[in-house]
């Protein structure tokens, strides 16, 4: 079973417009478009200490913008066919857009180094150090 990621015809990676990506602290039983621009974006505020605030269904959210590590590119993928895990078929993803930053949201807690999501990014530097081809012998 292979996973194929195809970049669209209009080579999105050279596109200048990025997707606005929000990482939210809850699970929603849905897979659909959501009117983020109408119901979420207008209410995003910045406090004096640069913390972002917003709400989802009345719950207070606190967030921060995260730049992706250098050399990395965020991609928004789309899979048009629902995968059938029993048949072990190849899966096809299409790149629909890219992003360079995302907003990480917590429920009523200022994002910090205690958040696993933010901590996980440490691995990128460590992996780099571990897997860099040795130069000294």
């Amino acid at each position: 079973m292979a996973i194929r990621i195809q970049s669209g015809k209009n080579n999105i990676l050279t596109n200048s417009s990025n997707s606005t990506v929000q990482s939210v602290p809850f699970k929603i039983d849905a897979d659909c478009d959501a009117p983020v621009r109408k119901y979420f974006q207008p209410f995003v505020q910045k406090t004096e200490n640069n913390v972002l605030t917003a709400s989802f269904r009345g719950y207070p959210l606190k967030g921060t913008k995260i730049q992706l590590p250098e050399g990395y590119q965020g991609m928004v993928l789309h899979e048009s066919l629902k995968p059938d895990f029993e048949k072990l078929q190849d899966r096809h993803f299409f790149v629909v857009n890219k992003f360079e930053e995302l907003t990480f949201w917590n429920w009523d807690k200022i994002p910090s180094k205690n958040d696993v999501f933010l901590k996980a990014l440490d691995w990128i530097d460590i992996a780099e150090a571990l897997h860099r081809p040795g130069t000294e012998q």
């Binding site: 602290p25 039983d29 849905a30 009117p35 119901y39 979420f40 709400s55 989802f56 269904r57």
Partner: peptide, 30 residues
């Protein structure tokens, strides 16, 4: 709205609102 629920005029923390959400919007787990 099935994702966001009500506009911000509504007090989501009232049982009237949360009951109305249960039938008309996707379930959300915090």
């Amino acid at each position: 709205d099935p994702v966001f629920g009500f506009p911000q005029l509504v007090r989501f923390s009232w049982s009237t609102a949360s009951n109305a959400l249960e039938g008309n919007a996707y379930h959300v787990e915090w």
